[in-house]
Design a binder for these strands. Structure first.
Lengths: 251, 251
DNA sequence: GGAACTTCTGAGGCGGCTCTGAGGACTCTG
DNA sequence: CAGAGTCCTCAGAGCCGCCTCAGAAGTTCC
């Protein structure tokens, strides 16, 4: 089952590209077409060339055709399990990076065995920010993609985030964040000087099956302010009726 | 309310065009024919080549024929839901931009995820100015349309508006605006040196179901003057019996 | 199995935003 | 100069958006 094909990245950021200049390619494999659509959309937006497949057989066929740099692979598939697909993928393209999608209660050690090769995994339900970030991490570690070589540091003013170490500092001082706080801040830092609506934030930072209200965003913004701004000149700003905005202090 | 259909853009600005010179194409999908007509009219006025559809099936067929650069899509359709149409649209044209229309109370529901790909949405009742602006934002981020590449800055004289950051400055000084003030000013700035009637302003800046009087326009113009002109040489001018006009100060 | 932490819900309150109404100023006309 | 029409501005009521607190439920770690 072919879900969608693809031509160009739509994102404002520079297209992800390999040393030869062609865009990075990713294959999304999930039997839930809605989820595959959402993932494809998000990755396309990030500059990937995306193709999607709904089962293991199609996935391998698509991989042979596309020769993807990375694969986002649901472990539970209608025809085969993730392990079979993984073996086939490695036959097709030995150096492919794989990001597994797995249910929370899946057997942890089997996943651990699979990811030994440098691959990674994310448990469902996940947030798009997490998938995108993990995939970036994989590629960086694999040494692909020129744009990613710059390192895992994210800077806005004197606010610095080390994504790999999951460490945040402001003017040198360490800031401790909970997982959600961290991911929210990462999203803000990847979109500085831009108003982000609560709905946008909810879409990217919270998991796709979150049924709650936009009110949580307000709450977590409030948490972040206490830790990030904390008496200092504020970097997180409310734009009434529009959303929130992170920007360096103007001097 | 029915707006007369027209063939060529009436607007003073150049027609929106893609790199190859042909005008940008948009498909409007809404089951309310009046609303579809209003939207179509406004977008045509902005220089788009417009076609409309009333349900998901027709929409996909039209899309296959038109190959639109963007789609304005009501989430609630008689035959399918937004996800289905979105998936079909992406199969037809993977790089299409989608702007969703949704009822206010449906936002919390399950819009989350749909917009993940960098697509955007607007809640009903919306103002035309908002739809047009969002659509421009989408296209800009997608890197289409030569005219839009200039960036998200709107300048009239020393008055500068950064739409993404929702920031307005006059000769460098920051001006704080409420949501309505912001949208009114945006409309004025996108139509400089042109007299805009109160009715025109009401139609574009206020949502289509606003029942109030033209008096609010006077009021908000007065608010804007206090903030934008504020002692300086005035840029906002009243044309008695006709409307208002924004222009740079002439020396 | 308990303690610490994290996440989310609900309620209360504050302040800003939007719009109405009224009074006054300005402009044009007869 | 009077009157009508148009526009400007102020004051205030109600509403809505946002912030914060407190606590319940779930999770992790020892």
């Amino acid at each position: 089952m072919l879900v969608s094909a693809m031509t160009t990245p739509r994102s404002g950021r520079p297209a992800l590209a390999r040393p030869d200049g062609t865009p990075l390619r990713v294959l999304v494999v999930d039997d839930d077409p809605d989820l595959a659509e959402v993932l494809s959309g998000a990755l396309r937006y990030e500059g990937w060339e995306v193709r999607a497949a709904g089962d293991g057989g199609t996935a391998v066929a698509e991989a042979r055709d596309l020769m993807p740099d990375a694969v986002v692979l649901d472990v539970m598939l209608p025809d085969t399990d993730g392990f079979g697909v993984l073996r086939s993928l490695h036959t097709v393209k030995p150096d492919v990076c794989v990001l597994f999608l797995t249910a929370r209660d899946a057997v942890e050690d089997r996943i651990a065995g699979i990811t030994a090769g440098g691959d990674d995994y994310v448990t469902k339900p996940f947030s798009l920010e997490e998938v995108v970030a993990r995939l970036r991490g994989l590629l960086r570690r694999a040494g692909m993609a020129r744009q990613l070589e710059e390192g895992p540091r994210l800077c806005v003013g004197d606010l610095v985030m080390d994504e790999e170490a999951r460490e945040v500092t402001r003017s040198g001082e360490l800031i401790e964040l909970s997982p959600t706080e961290f991911e929210l801040l990462r999203f803000l830092m990847r979109n500085p000087r831009r108003v982000l609506s609560k709905a946008q934030i909810l879409d990217r930072v919270w998991s796709y099956d979150f049924g709650g209200q936009a009110h949580v965003v307000e709450l977590y913004i409030s948490y972040l302010r206490k830790k990030v701004d904390a008496g200092r000149e504020p970097m997180i700003h409310t734009v009434r009726g529009a959303g929130y905005l992170l920007k360096p202090v103007t001097r």
